[in-house]
Design a protein around this nucleic acid. Sequence first.
DNA 1: GTGAAAGCGCTAACAG
DNA 2: CTGTTAGCGCTTTCAC
Lengths: 344, 344
Amino acid sequence: MAVTLKDVATLAGVSVKTVSNVVNGYAFVKPENRRRVEEALAATGYRPNVGARNLRRGRTGFLALMVPELSIPYFGELAGLVITAAQRRGWSVLIEQTQGTRTRERATVDSLGPHLVDGALVHPEALESGDFPDPEKGIPMVLLGEHAVDVELDRVAIDNVRAAHAAVSHLVSLGRKRIAAIGVNPRRGTASLRVAGYRAALSDAGLSVVDSLMEPADKYHRANGAAAMKRLLSLPEPPDAVFCFNDLLAVGALRSVAERGLRVPQDIAIVGFDNTDESAFSLPSITTIAPDKAAIADAAVDLVHARIAGTEQTPPHEVQPPFSLEIRESTAGVGTAAGGTPAA
Amino acid sequence: MAVTLKDVATLAGVSVKTVSNVVNGYAFVKPENRRRVEEALAATGYRPNVGARNLRRGRTGFLALMVPELSIPYFGELAGLVITAAQRRGWSVLIEQTQGTRTRERATVDSLGPHLVDGALVHPEALESGDFPDPEKGIPMVLLGEHAVDVELDRVAIDNVRAAHAAVSHLVSLGRKRIAAIGVNPRRGTASLRVAGYRAALSDAGLSVVDSLMEPADKYHRANGAAAMKRLLSLPEPPDAVFCFNDLLAVGALRSVAERGLRVPQDIAIVGFDNTDESAFSLPSITTIAPDKAAIADAAVDLVHARIAGTEQTPPHEVQPPFSLEIRESTAGVGTAAGGTPAA
DNA sequence: GTGAAAGCGCTAACAG
DNA sequence: CTGTTAGCGCTTTCAC
């Protein structure tokens, strides 16, 4: 069926080795032979069998990327960037979805044998420290996103505490006093870091942390943001600002505020997280924490590459790409809230 | 390093064959041997080498999915569903991005050797008929999305002409007379089908097709929708309704209408296409054509599967999954436009 | 039922 | 510089 090295060799009247040398760009091949091989290559339309080559070389040519769901804009965008970054290193990317459940994350993480992929980029949501396979064995793995898990792995994530602090401080600078948070999910790694930043910013501003203003969200989807915001709005003393732990929650919150007949940012200011494309075009557009996603993707790919190449033998490394606060309509152009929000 | 079949065999004191039989669930193995093998399997933590297995079996276990960009919500959502569908068939999915350029699409399409993947799902944007490798040779390939290309391949796509017709007819039923279209890109396969549906619906309604109301869009991104809408709004006789060829364009259009101080749907009604999650939460939410994406993903995977298994030897097949018109705020609750739009 | 041996397509020694 | 020879880890005849 398919053309093999041997076929080409026979046709060119040389040995398999010589053909292999030509295919792999080995320099020292007699010009005459090279010409004949190249002719035979063209004539047969030979394509190397990647599987066989990798079996021999002991590598696979694949990189795995584990994410909760590709339909979540942040992960769609990130995956796109990872694929691009991996391509530069000659890798194809295999995507695994876990829906953010611990069971599936664990299953994925230890199905990632060295035969399937050369390395993995994993963005866990619910994984706990003990769930990881022994880093000594198994393939190089880098963790994406900051997490509370304590495991000896390379990581790439922006400084979530500082980012959350920046977001909330921005709200404070607008004169807001009752600043809520949506996405306060205790069982979620990243969430605890953002909560820490939120608390710190409030206390730096002399504001007290009010439990009823901290809304959990089972999933970080639009609908959950809308539901959480509805609950906040029915509080005896509703918030005058909300920090949502991702843009999707913010989009949902926006809708609930509008349905209640209130205005953003005049009545309620909103800040999101992730700077997904969507947040720049919503009405109003959403102020958000903008992690440098391309830098995240590049750093992650570079890290696995270093581990695989053995360049990096040092203990696990943590890379913190930069982020910025993207100020948009959902917090812009207004100072203190219009309504009489009583000071805490 | 890694445990091989042979290691397990040695430990269990049986031959490689027996271990292989157990691993592959072959029924007739002496219970005693089965037990010992299973013990050895557990003790060593054996994991089959997928590469070697596939080399032997002549398959790879991978399916390729070619899309323009994962950061476009429609493709992110679709890719997620494809991965899920493929998983049920035991395939891992490899994603290739082309940015929708013909060069990269062509390069991708003919780099997809039989050694790399068992089959491919391709969603071209700019590919032309001659760009495809000979379907006889090469791997099974199914085309995603409707296209003007004439090539002997299985396809999966909703009926774009009928869908566009439904969208525009809905606008007509609202009493709109000057119905614009955004995304009218001559060099784009799907676009021409949607234009056909648009024209047909207008003519069915006795409305004339006005060239200046047909806006192209270089890319189907939010920014392009916004720009196109701006141009439409500066027309001497602006439209009272717009059919956008995807939701992203519609989101952009929404913003330009709002910035102009006009209301949706009262002044301008908007219909999108794709039913991305975003369209259900925008303000206002967007009426859109909702293709059954899960059905698309399933059908596509089933089709390659049938080709690979050889079940399907018949000539190329076209599957048209269902779609529906999802009526939302951007066209709801109003009849004829408020303003005095002159009849055409 | 199970073992031995061949070989999938390729690359890495090692001679020549 | 190039040919020959082993095997990467697995499945698969084919005997026993």
